[in-house]
Design a binder for these strands. Structure first.
Length: 634
RNA sequence: GCUAAAUUAGCUCAGUGGUAGAGCAACUGAUUCGUAAUCAGUAGGUCGGGGGUUCAAAUCCCCCAUUUAGCUCCA
């Protein structure tokens, strides 16, 4: 008997059956064998010591692939758990998966792990990698598994086992004295783990449910060599420099002040200018795309929130009522009730639709204290909100245009990588399932027609409608939701919205709730991190800084400033009696895009020397040339 | 809200029971200089807030607030 192995390039190799997967890798090249983490056999990930008994398509995953990283990190999590169990035998183990950047393991222990203990654990892990302990897979029945983990008093494993159907085969992996319930696959042995670091500890609820016990989690990361580990650690350092909270302070853009209140943002002049430019662009674009702008109040009577249902299902995120003349008023957590009230204030014909009502609407939500985060998660924020009210026939066009509009706008700010999610009907939902179907398909078609890659979040929609979310990543690769496009089958009913159709009868319109930037605050935060503070020229609060070399050029500098201002550019002069090197340094640190250096030579010849932030000296040129160059970038 | 850590001058940080410190920034003066820091001087702090222990607290203990990293939840 022999087996035919087909490799990804189509080439084939014949072996006497059975053949171990890593033997194939070895024959392809010793380097591949060395770098291989797992084998993919007919599309299924397997351990490298897997015996192949039948003809199969085989490929190998190294650390370069997502699957390879995943297994590598998962195996490191097991290694860490082994070290923890050896050092702290009384600790119970819970779960330890690979995550986007590394791995974690949750432990049940009364005390938290302190930094000194992390070092101990790391050292023990190093010893264990030196022993090259093989990860040994064992398949057993559920009863055997329960018995085994009961004997070790690993109660969390028993709980996991209790949820696995009785007939299923269960696998465990053991390296040395450590055994874990695990589906696998894993790397061959612990010596494959070359470079690792335990990064941080935190609490984490068992099964992610805050009603459950809080376990102690250790996060870590590992790499096949020290170089990659050091690169990653450097990336973390650089991410700190891109942090919008640091940039906000350094560039004097905004602050959040203890006395004013947590999660409430003070926009300083520089930040306010950027925000103004964003909002101005936003308004212009919305008008161009057929939106009507509205303004609505910040508070509304209890009756309004009763009608909208917010007092029923959203109350815990709302600030407490304030009483005026015996009536309760609430500060708004959302703009929808107001926009829909605008719609309701008139009778509408199908000829009026679609109606797109937009507003930069400031809302206030009570967010639990632990979730606040710079500008990304605040308690008072401005949504770039709009509600599209349309007929069923208009749905597809509206959704299509909207998605194009959203990407167009995000790209205008420089963003080029997005995570797109389509969330479908949850178990508890309002509205006609046929409407859900129509709306979901409309969203899906639009994404597919435009060739946008997306993930489906099955059952992840709000109870009132399906949605598309677009997320943008921050400096640390954390994804923040910005754009959201949500159908609403709840509010049209609650507000009894209607339009008169061509048949002269009343119909219920569709309502799409959407925000493209999401909130101005969060968007601003992601924007700062994405550009590392070096905003596109059109958004810079100061676009040009004019730097005279000595006091003799002050008049010339001021004249230049006037010329730039006349073109609508934001230009300032640094007239302090400092040396040019110092002024340049300051302008560079403030990330001002263009510096105009003017000394005796420039003043006499009517030229400027231009310098571009991040690029350096651009040389001497005429004022007209400088203006042309700047204009070209705008 | 939960777990853990932190909070000292505008900023970044030192200071482990005995008179509150540095660098940068600010202010004043001198310097007028060619591509990332000129020199000198001055001023600036209820050591997050409150309570306690102590002869004595930035330092030890308790409560509260805020921040940070996660968890849960969300734009």
């Amino acid at each position: 008997m022999s087996v035919m192995i087909t490799l990804p390039d189509g080439s084939q190799r014949q072996y006497p059956a059975p053949v171990r997967a890593d033997q194939v890798a070895q024959d392809i090249s010793p380097r591949l064998a060395e770098a291989s983490i797992i084998a993919e056999i007919d599309g299924v990930l397997k351990d490298l010591d897997q015996l192949i008994e039948h003809d199969a398509a085989v490929r190998f995953h190294t650390f370069d692939s997502d699957a390879g990283k995943d297994v590598y990190w998962h195996s490191t999590a097991h290694l860490m758990a082994q070290a923890v169990k050896q050092l702290f035998p009384q600790v119970r183990i819970a779960i330890g998966p690979a995550i986007e950047n590394g791995f974690y393991y949750d432990f049940d222990r009364d005390e938290s792990f302190i930094d000194e203990e992390l070092v101990l654990i790391e050292n023990r892990m190093k010893e264990l990698t030196a022993s090259a302990l093989p990860y040994q897979r064992k398949e057993l029945s559920k009863a055997e598994a329960v018995q085994k983990f009961s004997a070790m008093d690993e109660t969390y494993k028993i709980e996991i086992l209790s949820e696995i159907p009785d007939g299923d085969t269960i696998s465990t992996y053991q390296q040395g004295d450590f055994i874990d319930l695990c589906r696998g696959p894993h790397i061959l042995d612990t010596s494959k783990i070359k470079a690792f670091k335990l990064l941080k500890t935190s609490g984490a609820y068992w099964r992610g449910d805050e009603k459950n016990k809080m376990l102690k989690r250790i996060y870590g990361i590992s790499f096949p060599n020290n170089k990659l580990l050091n690169e990653y650690l450097r990336f973390l350092e650089e991410a700190k420099l891109r942090d919008h909270r640091k940039l906000g302070k350094d560039l004097d853009l905004f602050s959040i002040n203890d006395e004013v209140g947590p999660g409430l943002v003070l926009w300083h002049p520089n930040g306010a200018m950027i925000r103004h430019l964003i909002e101005q662009y936003w308004k212009d674009e919305h008008i161009r795309h057929g939106y009507k702008l509205v303004y609505t109040p910040h508070i509304g009577r209890a009756q309004l929130w009763q009608t909208s249902g917010h007092l029923g299902y959203y109350k815990e995120s709302m600030y407490a009522a304030m009483e005026v003349e015996g009536q309760d008023y609430y500060i708004k957590p959302m703009n929808c009730p107001f926009h829909l009230s605008v719609y309701k204030s008139n009778l509408h014909s199908y000829r009026d639709l679609p109606l797109r009502l937009g507003e930069l609407g400031t809302v206030y939500r009570y967010e639990r204290s632990g979730v606040l985060h710079g500008l990304m998660r605040v308690r008072g924020f401005t949504q770039d909100d709009a509600h599209i009210i349309c007929t069923p026939e208009q749905l597809d066009d509206e959704v299509n245009d909207l998605i194009i509009f959203a990407f167009e706008m995000l790209r205008h700010f420089g963003f080029d990588k997005f995570l797109v999610y389509l969330s479908t009907m949850p178990d508890a939902a309002v509205g006609d399932p046929r409407d859900w179907e129509t709306a979901t398909e409309s969203l899906r078609h639009a994404l597919e027609k435009l060739g946008i890659e997306y993930e489906v979040d099955k059952g992840g929609g709000a109870f009132y409608g399906p949605k598309i979310d677009i997320k943008i990543k921050d400096a640390l690769n954390r994804a923040w939701q910005c754009t959201t496009i949500q159908f609403d089958f709840n509010l049209p009913e609650r507000f009894d919205m209607t339009y008169i159709g061509a048949d002269n009868a009343q119909h219920r319109p569709f309502v799409i709730h959407r925000a493209i930037l999401g909130s101005v605050e969060r968007f601003f935060g992601t924007l700062l991190e994405f550009h590392a503070g070096n905003l596109p020229l059109w958004l810079c609060p100061v676009q040009l800084m004019i730097l005279p070399i000595t006091d003799s050029q002050i008049d010339y500098a001021k004249d230049l400033q006037k010329q730039f201002l006349a073109r609508g550019w934001r230009a300032e002069c640094d007239l302090r009696g400092e040396k040019i090197g110092y002024k340049i340094r300051e302008a560079e640190l403030k990330k001002i895009p263009y510096m105009c250096i003017v000394g005796k030579n420039e003043a006499e010849s009517g030229n400027v020397t231009l310098r571009r932030h991040t690029r350096g000296d651009l040389g001497v040129m005429s004022i007209a040339q400088a203006m042309e160059m700047i204009q070209a970038e705008l």
